Simulated scan of single mutants.
Amino acid sequence: MSHRILIADDHPLMRTALTQTIGQAIPGAVILEASRFDQIKPVLDTGEPPDIILLDLHMPGMSGLIGLMMLRSEHPAIPVIVVSASEDPVTIQRAIDYGASGFVPKSAPNTQIVEAIHAVLDGELWLPEINGGPETDAPDPAQRAATLTPQQLRVLAGIAEGKLNKQIAYEMNVAETTVKAHVTTILRKLGVLTRTQAAVLASQLALSSAPPPPVE
């Protein structure tokens, strides 16, 4: 299956560089482009929206993180990787808090953007290692898990059992893309980056089996 990837950046050279990098690393990928924020919506509203968005926070019309929040609110199933010239931990953490699934500095090597794309397409979060990464005063695991919805807890239980997204989707009778969206939200709420870390945290909480469905 070929992936559709939207590059939203106002710098032509940056779009060209990303297009070449992705084309070499992900054969068959369909690259879409936008140079202003108002060009993104028409692409997302087509019958074939992208599988992932690479987003510059400072493109015309973005309004920084406000544009990111608007995208996540209107199209929650499409993951976003912020590709930014900013590298400070505060900006990185805010981007993740406001819905980004990944953050890649523009100064990063090409291999990092490819790693980030693969990780996010698999439903994981991806962050650069900059001064140890963004620091958070995260609550304990039980408090974090308490923020999950019943559906998200069922997905987390499946992750803890080592199940693939398609297996979890089959058992829950939902689309695999829905499970991927849940996984991304779960990682963000739990304050972890990978499924493995989420599974470890789930095992600590004895979430070894899916909770019963809510009573109608």
Rank of each mutant, 00 (worst) to 15 (best):
D38H: 15
D122F: 01
A157L: 10
I31G: 10
P42A: 07
A210F: 01
L54V: 04
P60T: 09
A108H: 07
Q20H: 09
G162Y: 01
M69G: 11
P76H: 03
V155A: 04
I96M: 15
Q20Y: 03
Q112W: 08
F103E: 01
P105E: 08
Y170I: 11
F103G: 02
S101A: 15
T194S: 10
R94S: 05
P27Q: 00
I186A: 08
L156A: 09
V192D: 03
P27R: 05
P134S: 10
R144F: 04
A34M: 01
P27W: 07
A169L: 09
F103C: 05
M14S: 08
L205V: 01
G132Y: 11
A100L: 04
G102I: 05
T19G: 14
D10T: 04
L148M: 13
H11T: 09
G191S: 08
S2R: 11
G133F: 00
S2N: 14
M62R: 08
F37E: 02
M69P: 05
L32E: 15
A181E: 12
A145Q: 06
H3P: 03
S35P: 05
S208M: 01
Q197M: 11
G123Y: 04
A202N: 07
S208G: 13
L54C: 12
M172E: 15
Q112S: 13
G28P: 04
I26T: 09
A85C: 11
D45H: 02
K189C: 06
Q143I: 11
P49G: 04
S209L: 11
M59D: 02
I7P: 04
G162P: 01
R4E: 11
F103S: 06
E33P: 10
P76A: 08
I168V: 14
E176M: 04
R154D: 02
A8C: 10
R188V: 01
A34V: 10
K189T: 07
T149Q: 03
L65I: 14
P50C: 07
G67M: 02
L190A: 03
S203G: 08
S203E: 07
D45W: 00
T136F: 14
G133M: 08
P128G: 10
D140A: 11
D88M: 09
A119L: 06
L205E: 01
L148D: 02
A95N: 06
N173Q: 14
I113W: 09
K41M: 07
G64F: 13
I7V: 15
V82G: 03
P12H: 12
P134T: 03
G102Q: 05
Q204P: 03
R154A: 09
T185D: 13
P141V: 11
R36E: 14
I31N: 11
L156T: 06
I96R: 06
I130N: 00
V83K: 05
P60G: 09
T149A: 02
T46C: 05
T185A: 13
A198W: 03
K180H: 12
R94V: 00
L156K: 07
K180V: 02
P79D: 00
S73T: 14
D10S: 14
K189L: 14
K180A: 06
Q204A: 04
P134L: 13
L125W: 01
A116L: 06
H75E: 07
L156D: 02
A198C: 12
P150F: 00
